[in-house]
Design a protein around this nucleic acid. Structure first.
Lengths: 104, 104
DNA sequence: GCCGCCCGCAACTTTTCGGTTGCAGTTTGG
DNA sequence: CCAAACTGCAACCGAAAAGTTGCGGGCGGC
C-alpha cells in the first residue's frame, strides 16, 4: 500500500524546486525567465519544471516560442487534506491508548 | 525564503520510509520488529527511523533493551495547515487573474 | 553467569539525482 | 529572411542517499 503521496513529496523535497514553485505561485514565468532569477542553468530549471508538472503541481502554458508555467494550488490542497486525515487518525489512536493507560 | 517544510518533505519522500511511518501509525514497533515485516535490513530501518525522528514525525520510546517507535500526527497536521494556506493563496490569485481576463 | 536478542557505530557499494555542457530545432522581430 | 531568443534532447559528472556487511556493547531470561 505505497501511498500516491510519496511522488508529490519527492517533487517538493528540494530547495530549488520549492523556490521555483513559490515564484510560480505569484507570477507566471518561463524557464528562461526563472533562469535569470536563480543561480542555476535553464536546463536544470527545465528538469525541475518537468518534475513539478509530472507531480501535478504546475501547469505549462505555451504561447508562441515560449512556455510559461504557473503553480497549481489544487494538488497541494488535496495533499493537505489527506495529511490532515492521516495525522488526525494517528493522534486519535494515541489519545485512545493514553486514555486506556490512565485507567490502571 | 527557503521554506522549513522542505526537510519534512524530504523525510516523507521515500517509499520505505512512508511504509515504516504508516505502520507506526497503527502500532508501536521496534526497529527489529519492523525488519521482520520489511524487505530491508534492520540497520537500514534504523537510519530511516533516525531521519523520521529528526523530522519530528516519530517519537522514540526506550523500554529496557528495546526501543519502540510511534508515529506523531502533530507534525503532519502542521504541514497540512501550511499547505492549505499556500494552496488557497495560489488558487485565489489564479481566480483573480481569470476574473480580470473575463472583463475584456 | 551465560546465551540470546536488540541496539549502535563505522566502512563500503551502488544507485539516484541535481547540475552542467553541448547541440539541434522552432518561432519571432526587424 | 536572417539573426536572436526560447525550447528540447542527450551525455556526462559529482555528490548525496539508500542499502548492505561487519563488529562490538548492553540488557534479559533461563
Amino acid at each position: 500500500m505505497t501511498s500516491s503521496l510519496v511522488p508529490v513529496f519527492a517533487a517538493l523535497a528540494d530547495d530549488t524546486r520549492w523556490d521555483i514553485l513559490t515564484r510560480l505561485g505569484s507570477r507566471e514565468l518561463s524557464a528562461s525567465a526563472l533562469a535569470t532569477e536563480l543561480p542555476v542553468t535553464r536546463q536544470a530549471i527545465a528538469k525541475h519544471l518537468a518534475a513539478l508538472t509530472a507531480a501535478g503541481l504546475v501547469s505549462a502554458n505555451r504561447s508562441g516560442r515560449e512556455v510559461r508555467y504557473r503553480a497549481l494550488g489544487t494538488r497541494l490542497t488535496e495533499v493537505a487534506d489527506e495529511l490532515l486525515a492521516v495525522g488526525a487518525e494517528w493522534d486519535a489512536r494515541l489519545a485512545r491508548l493514553k486514555a486506556v493507560a490512565e485507567q490502571l
